[in-house]
């Protein structure tokens, strides 16, 4: 399969790989996907008192497109408010990386990861989860 240059760039030089302490109250963690499906994304955001995402990190088990999607997302998230971050759609990710149709699910998973991380942060900080729950949505 031919990957776009952007996918290859993110795959070969992934940005913001790593982890924050999941217990910290300023950290939101989203883990989506399943090993049996071939991809698992862990996305973490660090949110400051103004409600702006200061930093983001990821770890991903998955194909090149899944790794690239999560790497790209960490870059997109920095500096955004939680509400702005909720507006990131899988189509933005897929377009930016020029994902082929068979890899669109990677961008969907990345969008899910953003929402799961924000939901985790909000529930930790007793904010309204705005109806999104990664576990429920899988049911």
């Amino acid at each position: 399969m031919a990957y776009s240059d952007k996918v290859l760039d993110h795959y070969e030089n992934p940005r913001n790989v790593g982890s924050f302490q999941a217990e910290d109250s300023d950290v939101g963690t989203g883990m989506v996907g399943a090993p049996a499906c071939g991809d698992v994304m862990k996305l973490q955001i660090k949110v400051n008192e103004a409600g702006v995402i200061e930093d983001a990190k990821f770890k991903t088990y998955g194909c090149g497109s899944a790794i690239a999607s999560s790497s790209l997302v960490t870059e997109m998230l920095k500096g955004k408010t939680l509400d702005q971050a909720m507006d990131i759609k899988n189509t933005h990710i897929a377009e930016e990386l020029a994902l082929p149709p068979v890899k669109i699910h990677c961008s969907v998973l990345a969008e899910d990861a953003i929402r799961a991380a924000i939901t985790d942060y909000r529930s930790k900080n007793l904010m309204e989860a705005e109806g999104y729950n990664a576990c429920k949505s899988a049911a």
Binding site: G33, A34, P35, C37, I104, H105, A134, C135, A138
Partner: peptide, 15 residues
């Protein structure tokens, strides 16, 4: 317990 135990994110119609 995986959040996406189903393959929902791979279903083109749902996407």
């Amino acid at each position: 317990q995986w959040a996406h135990g189903s393959e929902s994110h791979r279903d083109p119609e749902k996407i």
